[in-house]
Simulated scan of single mutants.
Amino acid sequence: MEGLRTCQLQVVYQSGHPLTLFDRARTFALRINSAIKRRLVSRFSGIQEISAGGASVINRTANLLSSAHGGCFQPGELVEVLTAEEILRTLDGNNCCGKLQFMPGMWRFAGKRFTVLKPVKTMFDERAWKMVRVKDTLVLRDVICDGAELYDKEGCDRCCYYFWKTDWLRKVH
């Protein structure tokens, strides 16, 4: 079950593909919207948040991810990481599922339950300096890489979240 001793952040961009023209336009529009809101809030200090009725509006359907092992995942839901044997069935010869590598440090979470923090739809590829779109990937609350045995004896101290394919998770009912 041991694989390469690399950081998942170094290879996670391989699981994605370039943003479409629509994605780039949407990202640009979201950035403009965010900048306008920030400027309005700073100009009118009495306004704490610009939203419908003073409460945040959340589009729950935009944050759904589906899986072969248990339906859709939403932030805040309880999921169980598959057992080591079940995970091995999803991996290819490079310890990857959909080009996302299952890292050696992730094995200790097999069979345990966690809460979904958020789905990952796009990420920034630091090597190519561009955004990439990823599919069926999410982040679990408090499931962080400890960096042990990465690079050298000292390890890594970045404390990054692991990225999880939905195929590695099962929804808890």
Rank of each mutant, 00 (worst) to 15 (best):
M1V: 04
V139D: 03
E49A: 11
F102L: 08
Y162R: 10
R39W: 15
M131I: 14
V12R: 06
A62C: 07
R43H: 14
R133A: 13
A110Q: 02
T27D: 06
G147K: 12
T61W: 01
K130L: 15
G16A: 07
A68V: 13
E49P: 00
C159L: 12
R89N: 04
M131D: 10
N94D: 13
V132W: 07
M106K: 01
I144S: 02
Q14N: 14
H17W: 14
S67K: 04
R89I: 01
G111F: 04
G54A: 10
L169M: 03
L40K: 07
A55L: 11
G53W: 10
M123F: 08
L117I: 08
V12P: 02
N95S: 15
K165C: 03
S45I: 08
M123K: 03
E49G: 06
G111P: 08
L117V: 04
S42W: 04
R60A: 05
F124P: 00
Y151N: 05
L78N: 11
E2H: 12
V79G: 02
N94E: 09
T115H: 09
Q10E: 15
A110E: 01
T122K: 10
N33Y: 14
D167T: 06
C7W: 14
T61M: 02
P119R: 10
E85A: 10
L9E: 15
F73I: 12
I36Y: 03
D125W: 11
G98I: 03
G76P: 04
V57P: 02
N94L: 11
N59K: 11
K118D: 10
S15I: 07
F22D: 07
L91P: 12
I32S: 05
L21K: 12
L138V: 06
D23A: 06
I87H: 00
P119G: 10
G53C: 09
C156N: 07
R26A: 05
E49I: 11
D23F: 06
L78C: 15
D92M: 13
N95D: 13
G76L: 03
R113G: 05
V12I: 15
V116T: 00
D23P: 02
K165V: 02
